[in-house]
Every structure is written in C-alpha cells, then in structure tokens.
Amino acid sequence: MTRIACLLLIALLPGLLPAAAAADIKAAQEIFFEANRAYKNQQFRKAIDTYQTLIADGFANGHIFYNLGNAYYRSGDLGRAILFYERARLLIPRDEDLKFNLAHAAGQTLDAPGDDRGRPAGDFPGLDSVNLFEAFFVFALLNLGFFLVLGTRLFRKTEWSYYAVIFLTLLIGIGACALALKWYGWRTDNRAVVLSGELDVHAGPDATDTVLFKLHAGTIVRHEREEDAWALIHLSPDKRGWTAANRIERIRTFK
C-alpha cells in the first residue's frame, strides 16, 4: 500500500509542484491586498508589518519596497521611508512614482547630501536606469545571439553572418563591460541610511569620544565596517567617524 502511495506521489509530483507555487502566490496576493487595505485605511503600522511579512516570505521586490517606503513615510519615519525607497530603486530604477516619492522624501532631510564619487555604474550612460537583473538579461540575449550566429557559420559561411559576428562582438564587449560595472556597483554598494532622529558621529567607537558632527534621519552615508555595536561611516572625505550601528541600516542587504 505504501509502495503504491509512493509511486502515486512520484507520478503526481511534477503536477503538484506548480500547484504549490501557485498556492504560494495566491497566499502572497492575499497578504499583499491586506497590506494595501491597511494602508488605505491609514493603519500604517499594520501595513508595514504586513509588507514585511511578504518580504520575509521571499517576495522582496521593488514594488513592495516602494509601498513599504510609503507606509513608513506616512507613519512619520523619514529615515526608513528613504531606506526602502532606495532599496526599491535598486530593483525598479525607472519607476516614475518611485523617483517622485524619493525626491520628495529626500527634500525633507536636513543634511546636505554627501560625496557620491566612486560609483562605477554612474559613469556608464544609462546604466542607472536598469537593474542588475535586466542588465544580465540583456547580456544573456546578446550572448545567445552571438553564439547562434557563430554556430550558423559552422554550417554555412554567409556574408551577412560575417558582419553579424563583427557587430555582435562589439555589442557583447560593451554589454560585458556594462554588466561588470553594474555587478561591481551592486556588490560594493555600501550605502546606509540614518534611521531616525539626530545621530552623533564620534571620533572613535565609544560614546565618550568627541562628537565630530551630527546627522539626521534620511541622510545617506557610506558604511565602511563595524566593530562591536559601532559602525565606521563617512559622508565625504572630511566627514568620517563612528556611530551606533543600530541607528543606521545598509540599503543593500538582500541578494
């Protein structure tokens, strides 16, 4: 009997897997709608918790981060609002709503923005408007096209395929550089957001060290490293110091 059940399970497994995934999505949609309802009813705390549940369930995407940013903004938490808008920007960089809300929230921060030099992706035209996955997708397409044309030349060497190979070689070279820059920018993105209130930045990792300067909610800093419960940050080459690690949060924490 058990053997029959096992055989049945093995036979039905390919069919069950998509059904399970579909059930997950349906459940996630329910949670998503519930969070949206809470937001519309101005229950921002509940909306935040529900969106966070979705993220914990693996549905972390730009739109959820955007909605979460809105919920934090409405609940008066400017620091976390900017944090989630920035996270959303990594995934949906061309979203006009996001650009508008992020600019609006950033306009309310008290500190002048820091030095943003050293971002390789920023040097490549248009690379800021695609996310890493899209950059990879375009590269994968070019890769496929290039080897497809090269493959056809194994059987028939036509003139068009000769020029197509040259053209695609150029394109794939540019695509590889762009993807490498995008990937490097993604991996080395050490930006962090000041979460709330006024943040003292000390000369050393101790509360008794001299306070060098103060930062306010929503300011984006560069996170260098952490020691105990202290983080070394910098805003610009001349604005550098230690602060409590739990008062800031890295933007890129997900893979």
């Binding site: 949609q29 979705l54 995407n61 959820i64 909605n67 809105n70 306009g107 996955f133 990879f136 997708f137």
Partner: peptide, 26 residues
C-alpha cells in the same frame, strides 16, 4: 507637496528577469 500612492496591482509581486540571474539559471 505629497507622495504618490502605493502600487496596488497583484502583478507587482514578481521581479522580472530575477530568476534569470539568480539560482540555477545563471
């Protein structure tokens, strides 16, 4: 001045092209 509303569509639960660049497909 104010922010724009949240995104309500259920399509927003997916991340386009993400599966291409993560996991086994990469």
């Amino acid at each position: 001045r104010d922010i724009l509303p949240i995104h309500m569509s259920a399509d927003n639960l997916t991340v386009p092209f993400r599966s291409l660049s993560t996991g086994w497909f990469f």
